[in-house]
């Protein structure tokens, strides 16, 4: 099946209806294993003690807030370049989920920072750039809600999303470009992770669970968006029929075919 075949919303709805229960079950199982490992298997950190447990929720949320924006940026290319019918649906559906993961990353980071750094917040490069990411998510959500026509809103949001993508490398490399409270990358490194396996495994399990959660929510939110556009199309069509029936004079030949049913005009 060609990739463009999945562009058909009806086919997408049918496919996701099959996939979603399995994804949801996998997500719940992964969270069960991940949380068990977090609280009962993973050891204390030799410096941070038990507060390292915050890492298992903070780091996956931080990864996902960037992954979500990357998906939105790719979807925006799909909207502007390939005009894929589901591209702006994907971008719009992902924004609230990305905002939620960004909020989780900021709050858990703040709660981790207080005992470790002695402060809830510092205007360092990493924290500030992630806050900017949250503001961008909220701005995009607002933009979609301001414009009534989803196609026009999708194009405007796609341009803004692509411009905002410049923030992704800033977030990623901020800890190397500037002197910040955050430590340099310790998992995604060219020379391999510097975290011990006993902590790395639970971290990857929790990251996998959070990624599955993202896909479950994203697919369901995309299904909702397709249904919302169907509702809109049906209302517009009904309103157009009503307007045509009102405006056409009774003797006009237009009144009969447009109103659909004889005597339907008010």
């Amino acid at each position: 099946m060609a990739i463009l075949d999945y562009a058909n919303p009806t086919r997408f709805l049918r496919l996701t209806q099959i996939v979603l229960p399995w994804l949801t079950a996998a997500c719940l199982a992964a969270f069960a294993v991940g949380l068990y490992m977090t609280f009962f298997v993973s050891p204390e950190d030799y410096q941070q003690g038990q507060t390292v447990k915050i890492m298992y929720i903070h780091v996956p949320a931080a990864w996902l807030c960037m992954m979500t924006y990357s998906i939105m940026a790719i979807s925006s290319l799909g909207t502007l370049v390939w005009k894929h019918p589901l591209a702006d649906v994907s971008a719009k559906a992902a924004a609230p989920i990305g905002a939620a993961f960004t909020l989780i990353a900021l709050i858990t980071g703040s709660l981790w920072g207080r005992p470790m750094w002695g402060t809830y917040w510092e205007w360092d490069a990493r924290m500030t750039s992630v806050l900017v990411l949250l503001i961008m998510y909220l701005g995009l959500i607002a933009l979609w809600r301001t414009m009534e026509d989803p196609i026009r809103a999708g194009k405007a949001a796609a341009v803004l999303t692509l411009v905002g993508a410049i923030n992704l490398p800033i977030i990623k490399f901020s800890v190397e470009w500037w002197n910040t409270l955050h430590q340099p990358a310790s998992v995604m490194r060219m020379d391999g992770p510097t975290i011990d396996t006993s902590m790395l495994v639970p971290l990857f399990v929790m990251a996998g669970a959070a990624t599955l959660l993202f896909f479950v929510l994203h697919l369901q939110a995309m299904r909702n968006e397709i249904l919302r556009r169907r509702v809109r199309a049906m209302r517009l069509k009904a309103a157009a029929g009503s307007r045509a029936a009102r405006m056409a004079p009774p003797s006009s030949p237009l009144s009969s075919p447009m109103s659909g049913t004889p005597g339907a005009a008010e």
Binding site: A233, M234, R235, K237, A239, G241, S242, S259, G260, A264
Partner: peptide
């Protein structure tokens, strides 16, 4: 009676209100 396809119908619009 509102459908996505086919001609726009006034009765459906009236009910829609």
């Amino acid at each position: 009676g509102v459908t996505r396809r086919g001609p726009a119908t006034a009765p459906a619009a009236a009910k829609l209100s």
